[in-house]
């Protein structure tokens, strides 16, 4: 079995994550928060750009920079995760069906509405004929893509795999989601967000890269079995709770944050607990931003100050565990190590 290293991590988010060398985070507020758009023309030709909705632009640009940073022209696989898919063009086409009563409809928004548009546009732009897959399983969309990538690098002799998570806000459906959350006193409190985070996984060991040790997903877990599951996952990788320096958690302010409280009880007091959705917003592939953050922390050996609740800095940051869930289901553990 090969080891799997993360050669690059690039994120477009509500933060200045795409352009900045080191992350300075600021808290976001509002119902929905857009990602900060880079200058897409630097990454995408105008004839292609003219058809692209936000998510496709974000995905293609983030993927392109991730490949650049890893010095790769064509990956051996392209794996994309998206929870809501191309909701902007889906809404556009659906609304034109409703408004025009099924007449005078044009194809562009339909063509660009399929969930695999981002993965397809990346392949088309690179002329990359390799394995290409798109995962669309709610809060496990990105994790499924990552798991497939890990499987390829560790077990199937694949050298370089491009993996990413992308979701766009859209303009209508998101308001209904927000409305229902706001009606519920136990609903999601952070803004709904959007973004694209892409990574290059590789079997090649390089200086100062992050190793992706493992990932596990569960459709359902009871809160009572959570600690046991976490400990079993760690011991599968020959680790104990006290070997984890930082725990990155997906708190979003809803009542299911109880799961994160329960998880952190499995770890000693010194373990640093961080949450990130107050910076990127909640969306199905927000956890890809969490992974980006984990990679940044391990590479820089620093934690952005706004993230720290106590000043208790650890001297060395070697091992990070990420835990995310959505509404008490779709749980994921991701394990990272500096090497």
């Amino acid at each position: 079995m090969n080891s799997c290293y993360i050669h690059s991590a690039v994120s477009i988010s509500a933060q200045n994550s795409f352009e900045l060398e080191f992350l300075e985070l600021f808290e976001i507020s509002g119902k929905n928060v857009e990602a900060i758009a880079p200058n897409y023309k630097e990454y995408i030709s105008p004839m292609v750009l003219r058809r692209m909705a936000t998510g496709v632009k974000m995905g293609v640009a983030a993927a392109s920079k991730a490949l650049q940073n890893a010095n790769i022209d064509k990956p051996n696989a392209i794996l994309t995760g998206t929870g809501m898919g191309c909701i902007e063009d889906t809404e556009k086409f659906l609304n034109s069906i409703i408004a025009n009563d099924e007449e005078f409809l044009t194809p562009t928004s339909f063509i660009q509405s399929t969930h695999n548009t981002v993965g397809a546009q990346i392949a088309l732009g690179l002329q990359c004929k390799a394995y290409n897959n798109t995962y669309v399983h709610g809060a496990l969309s990105f994790e499924s893509a990552l798991l497939d990538g890990l499987l390829m690098v560790q077990n199937e002799e694949t050298k370089n795999v491009l993996v990413g998570g992308v979701d766009e806000l859209g303009t209508e459906f998101v308001d209904y989601v927000r409305m229902l959350e706001d009606q519920n006193p136990n609903g999601i409190k952070v803004p709904i967000g959007e973004g694209a985070s892409f990574f290059v996984l590789s079997s090649e060991k390089k200086h100062n890269v992050v190793e992706l040790l493992g990932i596990k997903t569960s459709s359902k877990l009871s809160i009572h079995s959570l600690q046991n599951e976490l400990i079993a996952f760690l011991s599968h990788h020959h680790l104990k709770p006290d070997s984890i320096d930082v725990l990155i958690l997906g708190n979003n302010g809803d009542s299911f944050d109880d799961y994160y409280d329960e998880a952190s009880k499995a770890f000693p007091q010194e373990t640093i607990n961080l949450s990130y959705k107050q910076f990127c917003g909640e969306f199905y592939t927000a956890s890809a931003f969490g992974l980006f953050l984990g990679c940044e922390i391990l590479k820089s050996q620093q934690i952005p100050e706004t993230l720290l609740q106590h000043k208790a800095q650890k001297t060395s940051l070697k091992t990070i565990l990420l835990y995310n869930q959505f509404k008490g289901r779709d749980h994921s553990f991701i394990l990272l190590r500096q090497c």
Binding site: G85, T114, N116, Y135, T217, S218, S219
Partner: peptide, 12 residues
């Protein structure tokens, strides 16, 4: 009654 590895694929 499947609680473990569950996912969805969409490539048209």
């Amino acid at each position: 009654g499947i609680n473990g590895f569950v996912t969805t694929i969409s490539t048209a």
